[in-house]
Write a protein that binds this DNA or RNA. Structure first.
Length: 460
DNA sequence: TACACTCAGATATGCCAGTG
DNA sequence: CACTGGCATATCTGAGTGTA
């Protein structure tokens, strides 16, 4: 673990480090946007409005279980009666109901508006969730509707927490936001502790989800969930058991990225977060390439098998690279889609979006903020708006358009490198491998590399 | 010696989309 | 809603080089 003395502005400090800082009353510097006078760790804790994050343990893991709190923040608001008029209320300053660490008192005389509003929503969502999972024929015709309603309620519940911390919100109050966060952190920390006591290893945690690794003496997951519910009063569910899961590093430094991972559940479903293929601005070609890579990986039943399949995954990348290099790509698969946030005259820099907007403007087509632009990259290096990209709307039927092969190859290598980073394949290596005429050396290089595990895979 | 220029790497900013 | 991450671009900095 990083020592506190080395923490610099911009570093994300884990909650464990904060807890340690509080215990030891260490002075730490936090992110740049925190004022100078927030130097004391305890003050810092109060100042921090963010949720809790464990730093993910990068790389490939087996026997991983994911558990999620159901609607964590709203559940906290309901359970602890958190509302603008109940937190630090005037009527019961001596209340025994106090938030951890920050010690704000919470009203004991009346139930707040927010809990009253949220409770029925939580119950309703729970019921929909039950009906979606229920095998009962009675629900068969409505399962899709229940799923949609469940999703809608989820986002209402998620954003209600955000609104608490929003200064313009009618029912917002920053102290509520703080209280919710302190409860949230306590919960996740306690949950992690419970898991560890039962023999699990905590791999990653974010806000309301925890990924833990089971071992031969810790495989009673139901017991884990029960125990957590017993101690916290908030229900947790088993999101799933993974055959394997890969947590990816950030691109900026080799620490774990909280929102980038992919894994295969025991039921054969994949869970993918943060990869290019999840992004709406990724062209279909790159999305397909990543999807095809993952499909090959999904045939692996355990970590060792996955390792063995990496050469096959590389072949997929090569296939796509050849297609790009030979100019055989279907143009519609190369289209980037992006939402612009302002009118063209307000941009300072010529980026792809602006180049596309200007082309359309020439044709009398105005793109307004909030609308999409679609384009193919024709010459990424160019500083001229009509060379840089080609607006998709202006591509005529049979016209032969020369796309920027180099750029699309770079995107492909990047997308592949993201997935394969923990297996020792950097973008540079991939670039070498996909060069035409490397068929034979590819095999050699893979054999050679299979013994050179990436640092993330080496035993401690 | 003073100054201008180039280049590469580090750092900051703008923008967008993802996580919950 | 709050917050993080990634990419492209702009700006800064220091080393190296050329020229008057």
């Amino acid at each position: 673990m990083q020592t506190l003395s080395r923490v610099t502005p911009g570093t994300v400090i884990s909650a464990i480090q904060i807890a340690q800082a509080i215990r030891e009353n260490v002075l730490v510097r936090w992110k740049q946007n925190v004022p100078e006078d927030f130097k004391d760790a305890k003050t810092l804790f109060l100042a921090d409005r963010g949720g809790m994050i464990y730093e993910p343990k990068i790389g490939l893991h087996e026997n991983v279980v994911e558990i999620d709190f159901t609607s964590l923040y709203p559940a906290i608001m309901v359970r602890h009666n958190i509302s603008p008029e109940t937190v630090l209320c005037k009527c019961c300053a001596d209340s025994k109901h106090r938030a951890p660490i920050i010690d704000y008192h919470i009203c004991e005389r009346r139930i707040g508006l927010i809990p009253r509003v949220l409770e029925p929503l939580i119950n309703r969502r729970r019921e929909y969730k039950k009906r979606v999972k229920d095998k009962d024929k009675e629900y068969n015709d409505h399962r899709e509707i229940y799923e949609a309603r469940k999703k809608a309620l989820k986002w209402i519940l998620v954003t209600c927490f955000g609104y608490m911390g929003y200064r313009n919100a009618r029912f917002g109050r920053i102290e509520c936001h703080e209280v919710i966060n302190t409860y949230g952190r306590e919960l996740l920390l306690n949950t992690a502790r419970i898991a560890e006591d039962l023999g699990y290893e905590v791999l990653h945690g974010i806000v309301d989800s925890l990924w833990v690794k089971s071992s031969s003496n810790s495989n009673n997951h139901e017991k884990l969930c029960e125990k957590i519910f017993e101690q916290s009063g908030i229900s947790v569910e088993l999101e799933g058991i993974y055959k394997w899961i890969v947590f990816l590093p950030k691109r900026s430094d080799p620490t774990g990225a909280l929102n980038r991972y992919y894994g295969l559940f025991e039921n054969g479903e994949m869970k993918i977060r943060g990869l290019e293929l999840r992004r709406s601005d990724t062209p279909p070609l790159i999305r397909d390439a990543q999807m095809d890579m993952l499909k090959v990986m999904a045939r692996a039943n355990d970590a060792a098998e996955l390792q063995g399949r990496i050469p096959e995954v590389i072949e997929v990348v090569r296939g796509y690279a050849d297609m790009i290099a030979k100019g055989e790509c279907d143009l519609k698969d190369l289209v980037f889609t992006s939402v612009v946030s302002k009118d063209s005259e307000y941009y300072h820099q010529l980026n792809n979006n602006l180049a596309c907007m200007l082309q359309l403007k020439n044709e009398g087509l105005k793109v307004r903020p909030g609308e999409q632009v679609k384009y193919i990259i024709t010459d990424a290096e160019s500083k001229r708006y009509n060379r840089k990209v080609k607006a998709w709307q202006l591509v005529k039927g049979n016209v032969r358009l020369l796309y920027d092969k180099k750029k699309y190859l770079a995107y492909l290598v990047r997308a592949a490198g993201n997935i394969l980073a923990p297996f020792g394949y950097t973008e540079r290596k991939l670039t070498e491998i996909i060069k035409p005429g490397r068929q034979l050396t590819l095999i050699n290089s893979i054999q050679e590399r299979s013994y050179q595990l990436s640092p993330f895979l080496r035993p401690e």
